[in-house]
Design a protein around this nucleic acid. Structure first.
Lengths: 168, 168
DNA sequence: TTTATATTTCAATAAGTTTTGAAAGTTCAA
DNA sequence: TTGAACTTTCAAAACTTATTGAAATATAAA
């Protein structure tokens, strides 16, 4: 397989994966493009490579920077801004986990805490079923939260390597 | 907080979470509704509770059954079909992990395996950067795959409890 | 300053996804 | 069989999200 073909396939696959995760396809494709680029790319180059508009490129590069997985860099002697992606996939994973936890898990934990306060007769089966479900989800969510926090805190591979030893 | 209010909030929160995960909002809401229902619900009851059409209810209930987290049951003496959700959140988590792994991780692993075969001069920095990225992602993806498989295989809580002991 | 170059914003538009509802299909008791 | 009760399908409509591109804004060299 030729490099150009392989690159295209990788960008496509990464975009698809992103889309399934609720991430804008273009954002994931820009990320893929930067991941495999040996040197920083300018907005122009990104637009060209993915055949997208300036506005689109700008917006999604900014979002990638918000996620902390792409950085703007200034090349001496150049007016233009250039962009590079964090190349350590472990760090990328941590950044993504942090962002998703903040946006998804944390709000759910907050709601669940509220819902525990539901009034009503414990003997009413509707009340009983509701409380039980909420409490079970809460337990599960708290465990997930703990696991994610551990993952996020880990700056090295110890988490995974220990985990793998345990689950074998 | 009244039960009716709490139920509505839970259904809304679960729907929102689903949407962020790339799951159809209605599908997640039906799931929430069934999770907190003490008894099986009919299509009619789902339509009524969520104010959705018959077709929509049918389509999303079917998808929930595909995911293995909702079951159709027949009540003796009734023509109608009724539906119940798996109440054990642990099992729900496993079912979701299994489904997402199948749909998302497995195809990526397959592509990555292909992309390793890229031709080219190892001294070319483009080739070098590409290979390195692919290999790093592959390593990370394989570790994730192993962790997910362990999670899926676990039918009891030992995985989490051991994990939590390890990461503290 | 002024000018040229680069970036950001945002309203309009395009693309994609979900929902509806009526028609077709299925099942079962009579 | 027939027909009532129920389920499934699917084209069209509604809704949601992403993208464009041109205007506004910012920045740096001359």
């Amino acid at each position: 397989m030729k490099l150009s073909e392989a690159k295209a396939q990788f960008i496509q696959a990464w975009g698809l994966l992103g889309a399934q995760w609720g991430v804008n396809r273009t954002m994931a494709q820009i990320h893929a493009l930067l991941l495999i680029a040996p040197d920083p790319l300018s907005a122009e180059e990104i637009m060209e490579a993915l055949d997208i508009s300036r506005g689109n490129a700008n917006m999604n590069v900014r979002e990638l920077m918000n996620w902390g997985i792409v950085e703007k860099i200034l090349v001496p002697g150049e007016r233009k801004e250039f962009f590079v992606a964090e190349k350590d996939i472990w760090k990328v994973g941590i950044a993504i986990a942090r962002e998703r936890k903040k946006r998804e898990l944390d709000p759910v934990l907050k709601v669940l805490l509220q819902l525990n306060k539901v009034e009503g007769d414990q003997k009413d089966k509707h009340v009983k079923a509701f409380r039980e479900t909420i409490q079970n989800i809460q337990k599960f969510a708290n465990q997930t939260d703990a696991a994610l926090n551990a993952f996020i805190k880990s700056e090295e591979n110890w988490f995974y390597s220990t985990l793998l030893k345990v689950i074998r």
